[in-house]
């Protein structure tokens, strides 16, 4: 089981970056479903359209923890527009690859981030990300 993960994934799993709660976040993302097991929360702080701080909490496997950790690294310092361009493939690439069966955990990372941005936009502009929907359950399953 442990053999499946590369050293980068293991590093993020063992030493997750930006893990924990955030006081007064500007956007909160909550994604997942206890039925299939994965729950991810992401909190962002935004100043002048730039994500200046980000934190996460994850209930899930090693790949889910590593994915959320690396998403926070990818997104810090990015503008909202730049952050919206992050895809789960970028998450997988930044981790140096994930076992095929664990790719759905990276989708969760992307969705948690977008859900946080969606929340932030709703709060500030009254409108969320245009046309955005979290990935469907079916895509998470195999």
């Amino acid at each position: 089981m442990v053999e499946q993960y590369n050293p980068t994934v293991m590093d993020h799993f063992m030493h997750p970056r930006n893990m924990g709660d955030m006081e007064n976040p500007d956007g909160v993302g909550h994604i997942g479903n206890p039925q299939c097991g994965d729950i991810m929360e992401m909190y962002i702080k935004v100043k002048d359209n730039v994500i200046i701080d980000v934190k996460f909490k994850t209930f899930g496997c090693g790949a889910a923890i590593a994915s959320s950790s690396i998403v926070t690294e990818l997104v810090k310092g990015k503008t909202i527009e730049e952050a919206l361009k992050i895809t789960n493939q970028q998450v997988v690439d930044a981790l140096g690859g994930l076992p095929p069966i664990k790719r759905h955990c990276s989708v969760l990372g992307e969705d948690a981030l977008k859900s946080a941005i969606d929340d932030y936009l709703k709060k500030t502009t009254g409108k969320g990300i245009e046309g955005w929907q979290p990935h469907e359950e079916e895509e998470h399953a195999h």
Binding site: M1, F13, G37, G62, A64
Partner: peptide, 25 residues
């Protein structure tokens, strides 16, 4: 899975019934 990986780091081998280790999730 997270628990068993961290236990494995300490040399402890166990099993889990978590969906995350099952192929069918």
């Amino acid at each position: 899975e997270s628990m068993s990986m961290l236990l494995n780091m300490e040399g402890i081998a166990v099993s889990t019934g978590s969906a995350c280790v099952s192929k069918a999730l």
